[in-house]
Computed example of a mutant assay.
Amino acid sequence: MKLIIMRHGEAGWHSIDQMRELTEAGRFACGRVASDIASSRWRPELIWCSTLTRAQQTASIVGEVINVPVIERPFLTPDDDPGECLDALLTEDNLPHTLMIISHMPLVGSLSTLLVDGHRRGIPFMTSQAVVLDLPIVGPGCGDLKAQFLA
């Protein structure tokens, strides 16, 4: 399985956290990263995204550029346990060969390090940054970082 993990685009601070919306710069950066992913060999077949507005907006932009469906998942908000996402990856039926997850810090950092290094300390992600992980077996420490996309 290939897993693309992306942090949402830059969001403004004009509302409560759950409703923060992307800035124009955030929308542009998401579109640029989506175009780079679309022209790469790691095109996702499905996107899972957080239930928060800025991740939904990012997923909408990426999904439109790449032409893939988006599904909101409740365990992808900023402070969720990356183990919940790992459990879903292990138990979900009919996962595509390449799945994309769009979420927030610190979850994207802790999920990435859990899958690559086997711990949850987390690496930093810039807004609109995406990484591609190769997971021959889905589990802690089983992934290899294959590519990175930056706005």
Rank of each mutant, 00 (worst) to 15 (best):
R32L: 14
I47K: 07
I71N: 07
S39Y: 13
G63R: 04
S15Y: 00
E24S: 08
A25H: 01
T51I: 15
G83A: 09
Q18A: 01
S35Y: 05
V65A: 10
L86W: 09
M19R: 02
T23G: 00
I66E: 05
W48H: 12
P74A: 10
P78K: 08
G31V: 00
L52Y: 11
N67T: 11
D80G: 09
G26R: 00
I47Q: 06
Q18P: 00
R54W: 00
D81R: 13
E10N: 01
E45C: 10
R27K: 15
R54M: 03
W48P: 10
M19V: 01
L52H: 04
E64N: 13
S40Y: 15
S15A: 12
L89P: 05
P82G: 11
I47T: 08
T23W: 00
R54C: 02
T53D: 08
Q56P: 05
Q18H: 02
P78C: 08
L46Q: 13
W48Y: 13
G26Y: 00
R54S: 01
V68Y: 10
S39N: 15
M19F: 03
R20A: 02
A25V: 01
L22D: 02
I47W: 08
A38N: 14
A29C: 11
T58D: 07
S35H: 11
R54K: 05
L46V: 09
I71P: 03
T77L: 10
C30M: 12
A11P: 02
V33I: 13
D17Y: 01
P78N: 05
A29N: 13
E45F: 12
R27C: 06
R20I: 01
F28Y: 09
P78S: 06
P74N: 08
D79K: 06
D80K: 10
S39V: 09
H14R: 01
V33Y: 07
N67K: 14
V65N: 09
P44V: 12
S50V: 04
R32N: 14
L86D: 14
Q57F: 01
R73N: 07
R32P: 02
S39H: 15
F75V: 11
N67C: 13
C49E: 07
A29S: 12
I66K: 07
R41A: 15
G26A: 02
L89N: 04
S15C: 06
A29I: 03
M19H: 05
D17G: 02
R41Y: 14
W13V: 02
L52T: 04
Q18L: 02
S15W: 01
Q56D: 06
D36R: 14
S50N: 12
I71Y: 07
T77G: 10
A11W: 01
P44E: 13
L89D: 06
E84N: 13
L76N: 07
W42D: 14
R32M: 11
R20Q: 03
D17C: 04
E10K: 02
A55S: 12
T53E: 14
P74L: 04
P78V: 09
T58P: 06
T23M: 00
R20V: 00
C49Y: 04
S35K: 15
R43M: 13
I61A: 06
G12S: 11
D80C: 15
P44Q: 12
S39L: 14
I47E: 10
I16N: 04
E72H: 05
L46A: 11
V68W: 10
